[in-house]
């Protein structure tokens, strides 16, 4: 059954130019943001004078192995909104073309349809993770002066963390697409919520932490749950050591939260699609 689902989803996507263009845009944005930051870092640490050395001392070597896997993951995650378009399109297109009905009429079960989307979102997440791995590895090789002295894969745990983060956030984007059915509404909501509302809410809840019994409820917000899988990289984190330590320690907890969030998201997706008239 799963082979048939994958084949069918592939038939839907392989000749869809927009899909490939958006993946290309993601493929460009990752090296883009990382190269820009790397270039800035490289330029400001190059001078052999005092200021150059001072900056180097302050920020360390964010693009050296193994820290590069952390830094790149953090920087790349700013561009989740591009693969989010892909994922929202995957479902809103079906509503727009009414093919979500036709797929059922032609003999799929409703759950098969949602499984198809689940697999697609996993695949998009995998592709995007591959982009990130490529960027991190290439940058690491360029930036690390002495490869023999470093443990290249010491921080390779950010690879599965990156995948988990992107999959959690893309699952959320998918659920929005399924709920709103219209691409611009779903995407507008995703952008407004993700870039503006949730950041304000997280900051506000942190501010009111005392009134809320010392619990930081912000960490349970849909995107924040997985945002905290990849804390700020060491070169920023070192400016506030205690917070950085707490952030690193809470990663494991957020792995569990993210898995629960994924489970709930897809449970709702299956439930809504099954119960709602098509």
């Amino acid at each position: 059954m799963f082979l048939n689902i994958i084949k069918t989803e592939w038939l839907k996507l392989k000749n869809y130019l927009t899909f490939w263009l958006l993946l290309l845009a993601t493929a460009i944005s990752y090296p883009g943001i990382n190269a820009i930051v790397y270039y800035g870092y490289d330029e400001s640490t190059k001078p052999k004078n005092q200021s150059g050395q001072l900056i180097k001392m302050l920020v360390g070597n964010p693009f050296h192995f193994p820290e590069v896997y952390h830094t790149t993951a953090f920087l790349s995650s700013f561009f989740t909104f591009i693969p989010a378009i892909v994922v929202i399109m995957l479902i809103t297109n079906e509503y727009m073309f009414k093919t979500h009905r036709q797929n059922i009429i032609d003999g799929w079960q409703k759950k098969t349809f949602v499984w198809g989307k689940f697999i697609s979102v996993v695949l998009v997440s995998l592709i995007v993770t591959l982009f990130y791995i490529a960027v991190a590895t290439v940058l690491g090789y360029i930036a690390t002066p002495d490869l023999d002295k470093v443990e290249v894969f010491a921080k390779a745990k950010y690879i599965p963390l990156f995948f988990l983060q992107i999959f959690t956030q893309l699952s959320f984007a998918f659920l929005l697409g399924l709920l709103f059915r219209k691409a611009f509404v779903a995407y507008g909501f995703f952008i407004f919520y993700g870039l503006i509302f949730e950041n304000i809410a997280v900051a506000f809840l942190k501010l009111k932490i005392k009134q809320l019994g010392g619990v930081d409820y912000g960490q349970f917000l849909p995107l924040e749950i997985s945002d905290r899988l990849i804390p700020v990289p060491a070169f920023i984190g070192r400016f506030n050591d205690t917070d950085y330590k707490i952030a690193l320690e809470s990663i494991d907890r957020h792995v569990i939260y993210s898995l629960v969030f994924i489970l709930l998201t897809w449970f709702f997706s299956f439930y809504i699609f099954k119960k709602r008239d098509l």
Partner: peptide
Amino acid sequence: GSLLETPNFYHYLS
């Protein structure tokens, strides 16, 4: 073999 209401196909496919 069913045809319901409107032809529902992927617009970008042949």
